[in-house]
């Protein structure tokens, strides 16, 4: 193996890493911002609101991310009314399509994670809030959501890693992310080991940095759950149920 190919082309990988990080972070932020109101509506809404959200979640969790991305990037061009509308310049861009697909995908998984943790709110807390005369909205803001976020953190950390790994698919629609960089190097030098092992090392470095950061956050958020005389709680390894 000859890793001098990599060192002389490291700029391709760094460009790829930049794109991976941008894609993942923007998708996660948009996905989470959309998921919070949707999860609330999924729990408290009437069935007219609930059914469309259920269908959305069912579709995005039940089909492969690759197929979703193809539907957006290649599929929408089939319709003349989209080709002729003002949004077409956006949908022609691979970058926009990848961002849109990733955001909707992570949103669907996050809705399900948040729904699960909201439903798990202890009854006593809800009753106490009602007895204290809180309105529904205030109860949501002060009681249900904060503890739901805390409970959701382990599953959500899996979702973050899942999104990072899923973002490798962007390379299929011509985007130069880390995987895209590896594919370029492989086709240029015909050196699959060097190219893909380097990509794998980049992803591992990002994954383990993220896992470390999330552990720090968990220590802070779950400080009240830590047993006394023990500064570090052994937290279960993330990514066990990657669908959350």
């Amino acid at each position: 193996m000859d890793f001098s190919i990599i060192t002389s082309n490291i700029d391709v990988y760094l460009e790829g890493m930049k794109n991976t990080l941008i894609l993942v972070s923007i998708s996660l932020v948009i996905g989470l911002l959309l998921a919070v109101p949707l999860a609330v509506l999924r729990v408290v809404g009437n069935s007219f609101v609930q059914i469309p959200i259920r269908i959305f979640v069912y579709f995005f969790r039940g089909t492969p991310l690759l197929v979703q991305m193809f539907l957006v990037y290649y599929g929408l061009g089939q319709f003349d009314f989209i080709r002729e509308s003002f949004v077409w310049p956006l949908f022609k861009e691979a970058y926009f399509c990848a961002l849109l697909t990733f955001s909707l995908n992570t949103c669907a998984y996050t809705v399900e994670i948040l729904r699960g943790s909201m439903v798990a709110t202890p009854h006593g807390e809800v009753e106490a809030a009602t007895a204290a005369g809180m309105s529904k909205f205030l109860m949501l803001r002060r009681i249900i959501l904060p503890s739901a976020f805390r409970r959701a953190l382990p599953a959500y950390s899996n979702e973050i890693i899942f999104m990072l790994h899923g973002s490798a698919l962007a390379s299929v629609i011509t985007i130069v992310d880390i995987t895209g960089a590896a594919r370029i190097i492989n086709s240029r030098y015909y050196s699959p080991y060097e190219a893909f092992i380097t990509a794998a090392l980049f992803y591992m470095a990002i994954t383990f940095t993220l896992v470390f950061l999330i552990r720090q956050l968990e220590k802070k958020w779950h400080a009240h759950l830590q047993p006394e005389n023990q500064s570090v709680v052994k937290i279960e390894a993330p990514h066990e149920n990657i669908t959350g």
Binding site: A168, S171, N186, F196
Partner: peptide, 9 residues
């Protein structure tokens, strides 16, 4: 730590 696509390639 590694995406499935990278491993497959």
């Amino acid at each position: 730590g590694i995406p499935d696509l990278v491993l497959m390639l």
